[in-house]
Structure formats: structure tokens, C-alpha cells
Design a protein around this nucleic acid. Structure first.
Lengths: 202, 202
DNA sequence: AAATATATATATCGATCGCTACATGCGTCG
DNA sequence: CGACGCATGTAGCGATCGATATATATATTT
């Protein structure tokens, strides 16, 4: 049984005056735009047109272009990043696991011709300084997972170098995916990159 | 002995009314700006301010922002690219030569904190479509040199894959240089990348 | 010296950037 | 009902984008 006060708070906080527009779906649509063209190249006009709203609605919902982009990045990380833990699960040869990770990245980055590469990785090279910072912060999470995985198998002095090598190749895969390289070429590159890991962990 | 007409053509084509401003030096200054910030992020105002001129002078001298950028890229390729032929000279183990090339790239890309990475490679990711096309055209020259070098040592079916792998790592080196990675880290990455080539050419 | 040609400087152009003040429509509440 | 609150639509903000029309200054040619 709710008190009168509790009931009032509940209804007012849950209630939606008007459906407005679907903000979650808006983030999804914006994600496609940002992924396809990058942060700088997508303007407010592009976003509002795609969302079927006018600028004030966008700013009321997300605060700013950067605010929307932050939500987009979070949504992307929650749903679209590589399942790092899946590929890097313990108990298998690390060179094999890391190679499989790079191959999976090659496939993932070329899955959809309009969503090429890794949005986080690419956003780290945006012209806008704040967008770069957002992306870098999110990218660090992934880098740390890879680094600490490598640390379980490699000598302390080699950890940083090997992790950097894998990350650099992932960066290259994302770039080349955006340049239009075929999935086959990128998978081949990933396998070739893996041969260095075979040598490292031999 | 020149005819009157020949003499006239000669003098009119050679003559310089006023020194105007030093266009070659202007290209040099613009090169630094474009290399530091990328094509999209450098505006006409930045350029004219750095050159100490006003917009009409810039347009009279170079035609357009893109025209100036084209001159900049050509100057860059003529003076600042890696000496591919030097590192890829014949008669040495190809894995060694290609590794040395990547190490040299790592050094070159981090030589000057304000000129990080490879300007051509980075320009291929510009938002402006025409700037991308210019850069891609120039980049192809370099790619072809590496590909045909690899073709001298690898089996036909492996050439494309190995060349792509090297190019992808060069792309990663340029990106990571721009992200602020230290020279040491990038050199380490290059050496690590070379281990895959050791295996390939073994 | 007069005429011509060139390069400069002044002062914008129209378009687009991210963003917002303001009025209106709509729904909820006293 | 009438007052209030919120999200919308209209219209436009100041700033910057790449690029220019126009006029002036300078230097060469006749």
C-alpha cells in the first residue's frame, strides 16, 4: 500500500507527458550516422533530419551534439564491440586466442558496408577534442583487457610491446576496413599478424 | 639569335612583376599546418594568417584550399617520405629489409612532435572527398613499390597478403604516432611485426 | 608620362556550423 | 474550467566555412 505522497512521486516520475520521440531509437539512428561518417562529418542538420525532429528537440533530449555522441558511444560499447572475454578466455594458447581476436575484428569491422571499422577507434582521431577524449576513455577499457590478458602469458618486459602490437594491428584493421579493403584481405592480414605472436609465445 | 616574337614570349613568361610572397615557402608553411592538424581542421583563416597574406592572395597563388593541399602533398612526397628504395634494396633478406622499413617508419613518424605520422596516409581518412582522393593517388605509388618488392621474394599467392600486412602496420604506426605513442613503443611494435615476416620468408 | 598588367587589401558573399530564444500546442492538475 | 508544465515547431542567433567582387597600389611596357 502506497501513501498518497509515494503514489504521486511514482506517477509523476514514470509518466510520459507525450511520447515525444523514442530517444533510445534516436541514439540507434544517430549511431549509424556517426559510425558511417565520423563525428566531425555528421552535422546537427543530418541528425535532426534522420531522427525526424527539429534541433530544439534534439537539444532537449541529449543536451548537445557531444552529449548525443556520448550516448551513442556507450550504446555502441554495450552492444557492438568485440566480445573480448569470449576470445581471450583462459586455457588456450595465447597466440591462438589473440590471432582469433584479430580475425574476429577483421570480420566485425567489415560486416556492414555502412558501419565499417570500429567507431571508438575511429573517433579517437576526430578533429573535435572532446569527442576524441570520450573515445579515448572508452578505448582504454578495451586496451586494458588485452594488456592484462597478455600479462598472464608473457614475460613482464614483453607485455607492453605485445599488447601494443595487437592494438596497433586492430587500429590498422579498422582503418583499412574504412578504406574499403575486403573482408578476406583483412582476415589474411590478421592471420599474418598472428604469426608474430606464434613466435613471441613459442 | 631570337626573333622579336620569341624574345617577347620569353621575357613575359619568365618575368615576375612583383615578388608577391614566396609561394614555395608558402607551401612549406602550409605543409606544417596540414601535417599537424589534418586537411579538414585547417581553415583558410589559419593558412592566410600563417602565410601573412589575405585570402585573395592565397586563391590567386594556389587556386583553392584543395589546390594548395595538392602542392603540399607533392612537396611532402618529394622531400619527406621514407626512402623506400634505400631500405628495400635487393640482395638482403626481405624480412630484414621490410622490418627495417617499418622501424624507419616508426622513427620517421615520431621525429617531430608537431609533424606526427604520415601526412599522405592520414589524409586518406579526411572528411573531404577530394582530399582523400588526392592522398589515395599518392599513396598508391608507395604501396606499389612495397608490393612489387615483396613479389620478388614471396610466392605469388602470398604477395598480396604480405604486402597488405606491412601496409596495415605502417598505417597503424602512423595512427599511433598521432595518438602520442612514444618512438620507443612504435619501434618495438615494428620489430614485433617483423617477426611475422621472419616466419613468412623462412 | 600614359597605358597596361599584376598583386595586393577591403569588405564581404552565401552556406553551413552548433545552438537557442520564443511562441505554440498539448496534456495534466488544482 | 483555468493555470501550469513540458515538448514541440518557427525562426534565427553569432561564428565560421571556403571563396570572391571590387578597388587600390605597384611595376612593367609603350
Amino acid at each position: 500500500m502506497l501513501t498518497c505522497e509515494e503514489s504521486r512521486i511514482l506517477t509523476t516520475s514514470v509518466r510520459q507527458r507525450r511520447p515525444a520521440f523514442d530517444r533510445e531509437n534516436g541514439v540507434e539512428i544517430a549511431r549509424r550516422l556517426f559510425h558511417a561518417s565520423g563525428y566531425d562529418a555528421v552535422g546537427i542538420a543530418d541528425l535532426t533530419q534522420a531522427l525526424g525532429i527539429v534541433p530544439p528537440s534534439l537539444y532537449a533530449a541529449y543536451g548537445s551534439k557531444l552529449g548525443l555522441f556520448e550516448r551513442v558511444l556507450q550504446s555502441y560499447c554495450a552492444n557492438n564491440t568485440l566480445p573480448l572475454e569470449k576470445h581471450l578466455r583462459p586455457g588456450r594458447p595465447p597466440a591462438e586466442a589473440l590471432t582469433e581476436l584479430m580475425v574476429a575484428a577483421a570480420r566485425h569491422y567489415t560486416r556492414d558496408p555502412e558501419q565499417l571499422g570500429c567507431m571508438v577507434t575511429e573517433a579517437m582521431q576526430a578533429d573535435d577534442q572532446q569527442a576524441r577524449a570520450l573515445a579515448a576513455s572508452l578505448a582504454k577499457t578495451g586496451s586494458d583487457v588485452i594488456r592484462s590478458y597478455v600479462a598472464q602469458y608473457a614475460a613482464r618486459k614483453d607485455v607492453e610491446r605485445i599488447a601494443d602490437y595487437v592494438l596497433l594491428n586492430l587500429r590498422g584493421l579498422s582503418s583499412y576496413a574504412r578504406l574499403g579493403y575486403t573482408q578476406k584481405k583483412l582476415v589474411d592480414c590478421s592471420r599474418t599478424a598472428g604469426r608474430a605472436l606464434d613466435a613471441e609465445f613459442a
